[in-house]
Amino acid sequence: MSNGTRHALGVVAGLLLPPLVAAGLWYGVGELSVQAAQSYRLSWIGLGVLVATGILLAFLIASRLSPVASLLGGLAFTGVGVLPFAEMTISVRLIPNELLPTSLSSGFLTLSYSGLHLLLGVALLVASMFPSRWRARQRPEYVAQPEYAGAWEPAQSPAQSPYLPPQPPHQGPEDATRPMYRE
């Protein structure tokens, strides 16, 4: 996959997955808290939604797709996560709690005032800052070795450790996956 394609798919994932993660978190937390308050029982639907949301969140944080996905999600979650603290600082109501249905509003307010939106936003932003996620994968150059008659080996062989005895070369394909030389 080319680098441009990887980043384009990252933009698509960054625009689609964070709203799904937010809705799943809001519904799951809201459903669990409402069921616990009303009838003191566990909501399996809310728990299932939270598990599915955790899988989507892990895909955003750890995927090799593109760091643009976690960057866009991190900016959105950080923006929402800063609202309660700005609200407390300037004493003006900034969090819209009447826009969402009751099941989502309860989870949204719980996550907002507990600071978990900010935590998720910062985690997503930090996950997108690693330089290795921005680089494309490098393919090693291969050259044909005449003694293997068509087998391909890396152009650069790994350096031999000065502390280990010299190892004989691999004798065939069955020796290629062995971790140590065996007689």
Rank of each mutant, 00 (worst) to 15 (best):
G150S: 11
G172M: 03
V122F: 08
L94C: 08
P18L: 11
P101H: 11
Y27P: 09
A69E: 00
A176L: 14
E31F: 07
P19Y: 15
H170Q: 07
M88G: 14
G115R: 09
T53M: 09
T53N: 09
L94E: 00
S112M: 09
G48Y: 02
S43L: 10
L83A: 14
L118T: 00
F130G: 11
R6Y: 02
H7I: 10
G28R: 12
A58V: 03
P67I: 02
A22F: 11
G14N: 09
V143Y: 08
R178Y: 01
P165C: 05
Y40Q: 15
F85M: 10
G54H: 08
P84Y: 05
V12E: 00
L15P: 02
V49D: 04
G115A: 08
P166Y: 06
L99S: 14
Y27T: 13
P154A: 07
D175W: 05
G48N: 06
V126F: 14
A22Y: 11
E183P: 13
L100Y: 03
I45Y: 04
V11E: 00
A23P: 01
G4F: 12
G54C: 10
R6H: 05
V68M: 14
L72R: 03
F77T: 04
A149K: 02
T177Q: 11
L119R: 08
P169Y: 04
T89A: 14
D175I: 02
S2N: 14
A13I: 08
L83P: 03
R64F: 06
N97P: 00
S112P: 02
A37N: 06
S112W: 04
L9A: 11
L120E: 00
S106L: 13
P84M: 06
M1W: 07
H117N: 12
A149G: 03
W134D: 10
A62Q: 08
V68C: 03
L47T: 12
L120G: 11
L111R: 04
G24F: 11
Q156W: 03
S66H: 06
V34I: 15
S103C: 01
P131S: 15
F77H: 10
A127R: 04
E31P: 02
G121T: 06
V12W: 05
L57A: 15
M129H: 05
G81P: 01
P18M: 15
L16Q: 06
M88T: 04
P158R: 11
M180Y: 12
A36L: 15
A149C: 06
I95Q: 03
Y142E: 11
G46P: 01
L83F: 05
L71E: 00
E147F: 09
V49N: 10
Y113I: 03
H170I: 13
